[in-house]
């Protein structure tokens, strides 16, 4: 199942946020979206998943979601969005209960996703007992449980410290290497973008337009922290963005 964005424009009142976005999201690839703060990255992600409607243009789903997929477009949020009153297990079962999955089948899915995210020992812990990295792993497990066709990740590692971020990037890469998934990954961190993205979409500052789409050809599993070619690409992205990032930083917020 591919996703296609055609001629997306979006404004809040008279405030133009996104302009003329055309983008293809092919199956099995991770697309990273980077851009200066306030350029509409997260808005774009909300449009893709149907949490917001574009002012004009369309988000198209090409083909059907694969069989067994419970929630084709599934988000992973920056602030994890776990229910604090439910255990790790309960948070995962929350998104399955509504699909009529009960009993042994429910437990089988939960055990499977917990094993894949190395959380089996923490099934009965409450979110407040977990570190930030663990909370995000729970959110990833929850997303995997509904067998998404496309994962929509909104700065999933931005609330974590840099060491945890490294560990979680490795986890994401190994998850992808075992079963390639489709993902749109919004981030402001260029290092994350070059580590995880098959292609990187650079947005301009507001109103966000696509400035360039940078391909990273090296296979995900061969990318390492501190690779020189990745750093060269990261520098290239930064050179593209630096002036706009500075201008965006100096802008008054109009919200």
């Amino acid at each position: 199942m591919d996703i296609q964005l055609s001629n997306i424009n979006h404004s809040y009142d008279k405030f133009e946020v996104l302009r003329d976005i055309n983008l293809d999201i092919p199956t099995g690839k991770i697309i990273c979206i980077v851009g200066p703060s306030g350029c509409g990255k997260s808005t774009l992600l909300r449009l893709i998943g149907g949490l917001e409607q574009p002012t004009s243009g369309q988000v198209l789903q090409l083909g059907n979601a694969p069989a067994g997929c419970l929630n084709p477009l599934t988000y992973i949020f920056q602030d994890f969005a776990l229910l604090p009153w439910r255990t790790v297990q309960g948070n995962i079962s929350l998104v399955l209960e509504d699909h009529g999955i009960r009993g042994a089948e429910l437990q089988k899915i939960i055990d499977d996703v917990l094993a894949r995210t190395k959380l089996t020992d923490f099934a009965n812990a409450l979110p407040k007992q977990l570190s930030g990295g663990m909370k995000q792993r729970v959110a990833i497990a929850r997303a995997l449980a509904v067998k998404p066709a496309v994962m929509l990740m909104d700065e999933p590692l931005s609330a974590l410290d840099s060491q945890t971020r490294e560990l979680l990037m490795d986890d994401l890469v190994s998850l992808w290497s075992r079963t390639p998934f489709t993902a749109v990954y919004v981030t402001h961190n260029l290092a994350e973008a070059v580590r995880l993205g098959h292609s990187i979409v650079v947005l301009s500052r507001r109103p966000g337009e696509i400035r360039e789409i940078v391909k990273v050809d090296k296979p995900l599993s061969e990318r390492k922290h501190g690779d020189t070619d990745l750093e060269a690409q990261q520098k290239y992205l930064w050179d593209l963005m630096r002036d706009e990032a500075r201008a965006a930083d100096a802008e008054l917020l109009n919200v």
Binding site: L51, Y75, D79, A81, L83, L94, V95, D98
Partner: peptide, 20 residues
């Protein structure tokens, strides 16, 4: 954000009220 999360996973209105 918890309510948005519920919506993004396709939870029914009743479930969002009852469970979130």
């Amino acid at each position: 954000t918890l309510i948005r999360m519920g919506q993004s996973f396709g939870l029914s209105w009743m479930s969002i009220v009852r469970k979130i």
